Simulated scan of single mutants.
Amino acid sequence: MRALLVVNPAATTTSARVRDVIGTALASDLKLEVATTEYRGHARDLARRAAEGGETELVVSLGGDGTVNEIVNGLLHHGPDPDRLPKLAVVPGGSTNVFARALGLPNDAVEATGALLDALRAGTSKTVGLGLVSGTPGTEDEGVPARWFTFCAGMGFDAGVIGRVEQQRELGKRSTPALYFRQVARQFVADPHRRHGTITVRRPDEEPVSELITAIVCNTAPWTYLGSRPVYASPNASFDTGLDLLGVTRMSTLSGARYATQLLRSTPERGPHGKYALTLHDLTDFTLQSQAPLPFQVDGDHLGLRTSATFTGVRHALRVIV
């Protein structure tokens, strides 16, 4: 099988030596080309060229969730082809690796490479659904390019936290649970909309739901990890269904502490719940609209401020080697 290994040299949990070992191991079973990313969006460009060239049968990501997201967007630049779904394999090399771990892969890059080689030899794979977010027609965000996501997107409070974490990482801070906790506290203090939400969820043939402070859209569970602890914002979310949504309509000190505790104690059976929590399951099409510009994120990548976003849950979008 002809394959392209896309390597992010800035991946936080692998070294140059480990990446060389992984490349050598994969080359023993694949006709492997190796490409190292050099700029933001490079993994997307590499994957797009591989998909359009027609000769590459598999793209392997060696990096974090951001690298995976770029590759997916490159592979699906022209949309999924039901007769020939793009093939992806993932070797986790980032700090969190939500997508890889949701697939059941080990979080260690070398162990995950061994699991990938076993899957290649056995010929096993899994078809997964993805989320697609685009600009909403008739709004100032109409022209925003569509973007695929593998595990989550969000508007409001959670995206604000991610933006703060990114700022700290650009200053050289390591991505740790402690860093996230500090930024959650700072976002809570600084968020001007946490008492009066500005987000409305609009679904076909359903009444709108308004005054959300944050909206977390999940394509799978867990939503994220704090170290080794999985966090379930939407426990029923799955690669086999549409999209799930968790919204919060009030975040006082008391309710904010309650929902934070529920997230930390969440399980595959139960996530955040209560009077001010909105949970929606298996959505195919919906729109988030805000009265004020709010932080927006896709797969943990902060994309600035948005007032609207239209979501589509696409089943059978990608084939993953597992």
Rank of each mutant, 00 (worst) to 15 (best):
H78L: 15
I213A: 00
T198M: 11
L103F: 15
I199S: 13
V133T: 09
R195H: 12
D191R: 00
R186Y: 01
V201F: 02
A89H: 14
F188N: 08
Q187S: 05
E207H: 14
G94A: 02
T113G: 06
D141T: 03
G129I: 07
R164A: 12
G94M: 01
R169N: 02
T176M: 14
D83F: 08
T176E: 11
G156K: 05
L75S: 13
Y180Q: 00
R147Y: 01
L105S: 10
S125P: 04
E140I: 09
Q183P: 01
R101T: 13
R164P: 00
A122Y: 15
T124M: 02
P145D: 11
D118P: 10
Q168L: 11
G135F: 09
G143T: 11
V165R: 00
D191W: 00
L171S: 06
M155R: 08
V144T: 15
V98Y: 05
G104S: 11
L85R: 14
R174G: 05
A122T: 13
A115M: 12
Q187G: 01
T176W: 10
T176D: 03
P82A: 09
P92W: 08
D158P: 13
L103C: 09
A159P: 09
V91H: 01
D191S: 00
G135I: 02
G114I: 10
I213D: 00
R164V: 00
G129S: 09
F188R: 13
P82C: 12
R203S: 08
R121C: 07
L179Y: 10
D118F: 15
G172Y: 01
L105K: 04
L171D: 05
L120C: 08
P204K: 03
K87E: 07
G114D: 03
R194T: 00
A146I: 12
V209M: 11
V128P: 04
G138W: 03
H77S: 07
Y180M: 02
M155E: 03
D83Q: 05
R147S: 07
R203E: 07
G163P: 03
